[in-house]
Design a protein around this nucleic acid. Sequence first.
DNA 1: ATAATTTTGAAAAATTAATATCAGCAAGAT
DNA 2: ATCTTGCTGATATTAATTTTTCAAAATTAT
Lengths: 290, 290
Amino acid sequence: MPDAALTISDLIQQRLDDLTRAERQLAHSILENYPASGLGPLTALAKDANVSVPTVARMVQKLGFKGYPEFQAELREELKAKVKNPIAKHDTWTGGAPSGHILNRFTDAVIDNIRHTLGQIEPATFDDACAMIAETDRHLYIVGGRLTHTLAEYLFLHMQVIRSQITHIQSTSNAWPHYLLDVKEGDVFVIFDVRRYENNTLKLAEMAHAKGARIILFTDQWRSPVHQLAQISFSSRIVVPSAWDSVATTLLLVETMISSVQNLNWSDTKSRMEELEEMFDQTKLFRKFT
Amino acid sequence: MPDAALTISDLIQQRLDDLTRAERQLAHSILENYPASGLGPLTALAKDANVSVPTVARMVQKLGFKGYPEFQAELREELKAKVKNPIAKHDTWTGGAPSGHILNRFTDAVIDNIRHTLGQIEPATFDDACAMIAETDRHLYIVGGRLTHTLAEYLFLHMQVIRSQITHIQSTSNAWPHYLLDVKEGDVFVIFDVRRYENNTLKLAEMAHAKGARIILFTDQWRSPVHQLAQISFSSRIVVPSAWDSVATTLLLVETMISSVQNLNWSDTKSRMEELEEMFDQTKLFRKFT
DNA sequence: ATAATTTTGAAAAATTAATATCAGCAAGAT
DNA sequence: ATCTTGCTGATATTAATTTTTCAAAATTAT
């Protein structure tokens, strides 16, 4: 039986490198709902993790237990100790750290931001925005600023797979006026503008608006002046214990939107994805396994 | 199988009067350290409570279960649900939407990812990584891939304010080998590599490692092969209801790290920020109000 | 006080689960 | 390209756990 001071969860993570592919797959499955899944029968665990029964038996022995029953006994001991111990109330995010550690404080703040932000979003409005972005017969412009161009780029990269006719404009570059030449009435702009609102971005929005484009704005709780021109605005809370703001909540919205738009355009997206996969295969840019 | 809304603990207490002497004795033993004792073999439980084996079998049937295994399965389900729900009783994040709306499902998944990820991070390791990044006498290289270069860029933009001697390398560009010429022993690499691990990134990491550089890796739960070369790795859970993965959790770590490094280098950072402010003022890039 | 009824536990039977064996397969080495 | 090594899972074997049976003990009713 392995060291008592270490939890099985720790032990598994620590020895993750010594494990084989199937064993690692199993390990992740155990950690997925820890410790419940490890307390069931070996057979069920194997099925759950999509590995064979012997793989489970081998792994627990590799971890230092005499057999699966001993492994389970240890898990139960751990559980017993945890319930007895009032500190295990799981009010902190990362187990070992004091609640005052920056990891816990920052995460608290972000979760709080998410709660506030989501609470103020009308699902119908969100769906409308997704539908607008999914209109493949209009050109889609994605605009970011000094920091937010990273979000814009992230959205752009995914939209590239989902649809054609997209342009990523960096408002910080001075080349952007050229892009506006071709804007048609009804085209869609997704604009990111958060605190330290940028003059360039506002100008760009004004010109786009004047040309009859529709604007979807991602901003913060104090709202960029662009919001007066925008058809739809999403305001994320961005306050965290830091000298800077957090765009984590905004990213959450962007990712959700990607997922939603992808579903709206699924037939298109699917074939585009397959084509992309094939090109990746040919260029050998990515590794297929491990 | 009995009512799902009731925990087994509740069920036992509620039906305590219908039980016989030996059964009551057993019931109290189960509640004594709940739920751990109920998750072991029937034989052990019987011995623990000083009752006979058939007594246990009879009682669980009396409580409405088909047999002891079903009783245990229910206990495990209960445990799973309990662990899963450490924070939010929030059944929905955005009020108006049904819990099946993508906004709610996606947010649930991200929160769950955060919980899993943070639960596996050693605060000391995190602090070590921050300290490494804060070493201003070493050169800092930040490396991102096809999608993750957006995160790399985000980190880079903030680090620019905090310290000098930073380079953002895009592993997708073929110019990266040039950057490696100047790498010195002890230099620090922050590398982002998530699913669809990139061959270029691995090559780059190998060369950096060979030159004696130290590597901090941000990857996903399955871990990029780069992790074998890395001094410190952070694995984020990235699964969401989407055809793509989520980097929201990784961004959370990056932002936390920025905040932490900023504090370590505060005197430096402060003067650099002031200088930056002044330059912004002169260029009129940003609006001071509204 | 005695019979009827219920409860209890020992032991056997049935079921289920865990381990060991082995052959096929895949990844890396020569 | 071929070999070697080590991983993986199907199957068989062994071990364990659970359920059933039945007789003894305790409890309750008459």
